[in-house]
Amino acid sequence: MKPEPRLQVKNLEKTFVTRNGPYHALENINLEVRPGEFVALMGHSGCGKSTLLNIIAGLDTATDGEVLLDGDPIRGPGPDRMMVFQNYSLLPWMNVYKNVLLALRSCRPDLNRKTQESEARRYIDMVGLSHAIHRLPRELSGGMKQRASIARALAVNPRVLLLDEPFGALDALTREELQDELLAIWEQNNTTVVMITHDADEAILLSDRILMMTNGPAARIGREFPVPLQRPRDRSSLLEDPAFYTLRNRLIAHLFGEEDDFAKGDDFDNTLFGAEAYLSEASLEPAPFAET
C-alpha cells in the first residue's frame, strides 16, 4: 500500500499575461512527493522551475490545476511550505537570532517564549552559526547568510521545505560545505524537501529522485531519475561509487541530448544560456576521479 503523498501537484497549468500576449509557461505538471523524500528539480534556465516552486509555496497562483499538501488544497503562502529564497531574504535590520526568532514567534505559537528562544538557538547552532548569532546580515558572508536562511526555514518545522537554487550564488568550496551540511541536517530531521538546482552533482548527492523539466514554453516534467545510492551518503564515498557516474552521465546526456527538448525551445538565447550553465556546472569541471 502506497503512503499518502505529502505534496501533490495535479494537472497544473500556468499562463502568464504579458505585454506581448499570454505566455504559457507550465503545461500539465503532475508530481508527487512522499513524506521525508528529497526531490531535486532540474531543467534549463527559464523553463519554469521557480514558477512551479512559487506556485507550490503559494506565492504565485496556478492558472489551472491544484496543489495538495497532505491531501488538502493549499490556500496561499504559509510556513507549512517554507521557502529558502535564492537571495536569502533575511531582514537586514535584524541580527541572525532575531531573524530566526521572528519566524518562530509567528509560526510556532504552540511553543512558549522560552522554548521559542531555545529553538532559535538550536537551529542556528545546527547550521553552524552560533558564533555569528548576533551579527546583522550585512556582516555575514554569502554562505553564512544562506545558513541563517536555512536555520530560519527549518525552525518553523515546515511540512515541505522548498529550496530555489539555494547554493547557486556561492563559491564552489562553500557550496560543497553547505551541501554536506544540508545532507546531514536532512538525514537527522527527515524533512520533506523540493529543491531546484542547476548542479547535477548536487542533485545526486542530496536527492532521492531527480525531476527533469523540459524547456519552455509549455514546460512539462519530462523525465524522472531515481537516485539509487545508499543512505546515509557522504561525498567521498559517493565519488568512488560507479553508480554516481552512471547517473551523472545520464543526467548530462539528457540535458543536452534530448532532441525534443531542444526542438521545443524557440528562444535560442535562452537555450544557449542554459547549455552554458550546464557546461560550466557539470561537464567542464575537472574530472572527479582526480579527487579520489
Binding site: A57, G58, L59, G76, P77, G78, P79, R81, M82, M83, F85, N87, S89, L91, L102, A103, R105, S106, C107, V156
Partner: peptide, 16 residues
C-alpha cells in the same frame, strides 16, 4: 518583494 514574500510565507500578523 523579497521581504513581502518572507512575511507572507511566515504569515506575519498585521502589527508584526
Amino acid at each position: 518583494s523579497d521581504y513581502q514574500n518572507v512575511s507572507k510565507v511566515l504569515r506575519l500578523n498585521h502589527w508584526t
